[in-house]
Design a protein around this nucleic acid. Structure first.
Lengths: 216, 216, 216, 216
DNA sequence: TATGAATGAGCATTCATTCAT
DNA sequence: CATGAATGAATGCTCATTCAT
């Protein structure tokens, strides 16, 4: 009965995913040490014993939830990579979507912050986080550098600006996670970190319409 | 022997302060739940039993460490309040000192982040944090509003800009706390969140303060 | 379909026996408390749930495995009982077969040792073990007493000698179970516990059976 | 206050020893897996938590109890080594004391048997046991070989005879541990494993040492 | 004060057992 | 019959807290 077996497998996979989702939320809210497996189980509507059918240890579940959250961001950046448009347009997209993401699912970033500040994270998690961080910064810094070439982005070390943006986003995620009534930050504020000041004596038109340069 | 008693009192006060400092560091590094009283004691060079002479519970110590950390920020803002100068100058000072603070003592802000994200913080801590947050935002927003009136600060809801600045600072504190080799963020990057774009044909009061993005 | 039902019954019986065999081995190796039902199931090639079709509890399976092992020894002694020959010949046979048994299937005796040393064995097991022990000792003591009457066995309380023999055999089973390279003990060594010293100036009936200690 | 510190240390050492004694008894009775730390604590009259002040894990305590038990036997054999007298006399001493030991403190040997049959013993325990076993066998085999040279011990591979003796002793320990009313085995029965048969027309050095099968 | 032995609530984890499929 | 998901009692272990010295 391959069908049944398949279905079982699929069901198991779905359960696992659902568990990861719940775990992400709970771990984000309370952190690794303060989260009791029973809480996740209860929130999931299963017995605590069953959690161990899917993940052998609390740490494993934590790590898996992290990987899951990081995956979301890696996917996000891969998307950005493929997005067409001028550097400035793409920066706008990145900012818009990051702010949107922070507003709609702050627990994902909060969980990442938890993982970052976890003093005893296992190596695998540590490595994944380092990779994530590098990727974020390099992607954004890359866009910034391009934007500087087209004159849309203010001067300054691209990496510094990228760091600032990511720090801002992480900080926002924390605020948002703590206050569900917090309104989303206007994208314009975030964009100020990158927007080039208008060149003296020049009337800026729609900056988006400038210099549509291909990207390397 | 009033002298001896006094000395005792003073010694106790000093010890208490030292303990708070150690606790701040350890709690910042590991969080409330993951910190063992014994670790703080060891780092302090005393027995774990002695910690209970100064603070009756772990939570009490945590709360005290938080208060201590918040105090530093409240003092900081009170200073700013009293600082003379144009709004822009004061904003510059604020930014400079915040970035300096993040660079030199990131654990203070990290501890505050820990406290903010602590799901089961006691009411006292919660209130203190809310007060701190409100104060930060209001102070900075106030400066921004003033700056907008003088034309030095870009338009936009002052509170949004203040939120962004504080989020950025908190995010930086996290990064810095995790990486002791991270260089300080150039103040200019932070100032971009507030700096008004040059109005065509307008003289700015402090043109010299611009274009300080230098960092190797 | 009586045929099918019969076959089912037979299949079930065979499975049950096979399960007992596996259980005997696993329980002998790890003991009751340390054995997981899943291990037996895995070693048997079935799912752990299926074990419960044959035995309702782990303890039941353990008890059944013990009974099975004891049965083997009771059969052995019943055989001895029926074996013709002089007492001495039968003693030789007993020793030979016990040593052979220990060498070839030490897990049977090891399981019995496990059962003996099980602090919380159920009454049924306890009784069966007591019966087994009594039977062993009485059978061997009986043979020894007969042998003493024919002058082939050294003097001494038959029960003491029987105890010593059985202790030696159990001890050997332990060694053997732990070391699959251990050679079998020369029967002659075991026989020394019973062999009568040569009476001065007397011809023994079976001098050939002596002095067979050779093993390099 | 060096005195106090010393006393503390000593007290701690004594407690540790007492705990080892209790652990030896309980582990011998129930085995590693079936023993609950709480049982040992209760039998010791302390809380289960306190056990962990002396030994970090159940396995560690088990291992320490084993080492302790093995130590006793190593001391025993070291004694034998230094004992003066003919090989035969020393063999008699060994047998007497082993039987006495089995009778008075069977739990020591039973614990060793538990350790031997423990499937998942840590390496340290495994090594200690192997050392113990080798030492036992070599010591006894050495005495036997000497005895054979003086003509007091029957011929045969000394190692086989030693194995038989140790197996017998271990088997006895099990019986004795299970039945506190079991009488000690007459030493003469054990000695039969080694005693040389009287050579026709020869005077033995120590005729008096024979025929001591009496048991009260 | 200062120490660390002592206690026990609390939580992670295991695993026998049940039962829907 | 077979499977393995599901449950929860049981137990190892941790650590905040107390307290005798």
């Amino acid at each position: 009965m391959p069908r049944t077996a398949e279905q079982f497998e699929q069901l198991k996979g779905e359960r696992r995913q659902a568990l990861l989702g719940v775990a992400r939320r709970v771990f984000a809210r309370k952190g690794l040490a303060a989260t009791k497996i029973g809480e996740i189980a209860t929130e999931m509507g299963i017995s605590y014993g069953l959690v161990y059918h899917y993940f052998p240890h609390k740490e494993t579940l934590f790590a898996a939830a992290i990987e899951d959250a990081l995956q979301a961001w890696e996917t996000f950046f891969a998307d950005v990579q493929r997005t067409p448009g001028t550097p400035w347009e793409r920066l706008e997209t990145v900012c818009t979507r990051m702010i949107q993401s922070v507003h709609e699912a702050p627990e994902t970033l909060l969980l990442i912050v938890r993982a970052l500040t976890e003093d005893e994270a296992p190596r695998a998690v540590r490595d994944a986080l380092a990779r994530y961080k590098r990727q974020c910064h390099e992607q954004v810094a890359g866009l910034i550098a391009e934007g500087q070439r087209t004159g849309d982005v203010a001067s300054g070390a691209p990496m510094d600006i990228a760091r600032a943006m990511m720090a801002l986003i992480q900080g926002l995620a924390i605020s948002r996670a703590l206050d569900e009534h917090a309104p989303p930050l206007p994208i314009e504020v975030l964009l100020r970190l990158v927007r080039a000041p208008p060149a003296a004596g020049t009337r800026r038109r729609d900056p988006a319409s400038r210099h549509r340069l291909a990207r390397t």
